[in-house]
Design a protein around this nucleic acid. Structure first.
Lengths: 127, 127
DNA sequence: TTCTCCGGTATCATTGAGTATACCAAATTT
DNA sequence: AAATTTGGTATACTCAATGATACCGGAGAA
């Protein structure tokens, strides 16, 4: 019985440790204000610099430029340059980029229901 | 046809705008390195200061203290003080705190599969 | 009585994320 | 011809988040 419980708790502890590390890894990769909105924008089909910039409230050209370079190095986006094409520079999402889909979905869900939560609170307190 | 397409694109654009805002709200609330690991730790049943601190690699007492105060103000944790009890100070999760569950789950999933991805890459290149 | 543990706080230093602003060359529009 | 748009870059700066370190009173153990 003792042995069983000990093993159980040791396993639980190891699991928790692994999960915290995984969580911290993800936070590290997605760190900052802009990576997730940019990933979201590109996965939504925005391909041009200005298009992406206009789809993200508050981002400056400098930050977008920096993050895009960074993300290109880390295989999160593919940048294509073809000066003869109608649209000379294209940003496209990679499979790796798409792997953040579930996280983004959950964060959007939370944000929307949080807004509703706030709105309900307000109407309740005013009435 | 033109009208239909225009309406469609306007609706899509509004949807995307709402989603970006929701995403940015969530990022704002969860900003920083520590909020999510702390929420995770408390939701996992850790109740004491040292317990929480030991469950999160790299966090200092100062940061934990600051974040816990902040989170108490924002109704993310409940702090109970009872000097006569066996365990005098307790941190507990609130319903609001638990609403981040899906996000945390997805981030843990991503982190774990990312680790596996890296490991597979390594074994492939060495062989 | 001294030592250690618990639950923190105070102070100072650092640093990098983000901002503001100006600028650029090429293409397109007016 | 002049103005605007696109896809950025360079420089300088700010400031809030984080880290390092030392310290604190109370409780219990050695």
């Amino acid at each position: 019985m003792f042995l069983y419980l000990s093993i159980k708790y040791i396993l639980m502890a190891r699991n928790q440790q692994e999960e915290v590390r995984a969580l911290q890894d993800t936070i590290y990769v997605l760190g900052g204000k802009w990576k997730l909105p940019i990933i979201n924008s590109i996965c939504n089909g925005n391909t041009r610099f200005k298009e992406i910039q206009q789809s993200i409230p508050g981002i400056t050209a400098r930050m977008l430029s920096k993050e895009l370079k960074d993300m290109e190095l880390n295989n999160l986006v593919k940048r294509t340059e073809d000066r003869d094409a109608v649209i000379p520079i294209l940003y496209e999402s990679t499979d790796y980029c798409k792997s953040f889909g579930p996280i983004i979905t959950e964060m959007i869900n939370w944000g929307i229901s949080h807004r509703e939560h706030i709105r309900n609170k307000k109407t309740n307190t005013t009435v």
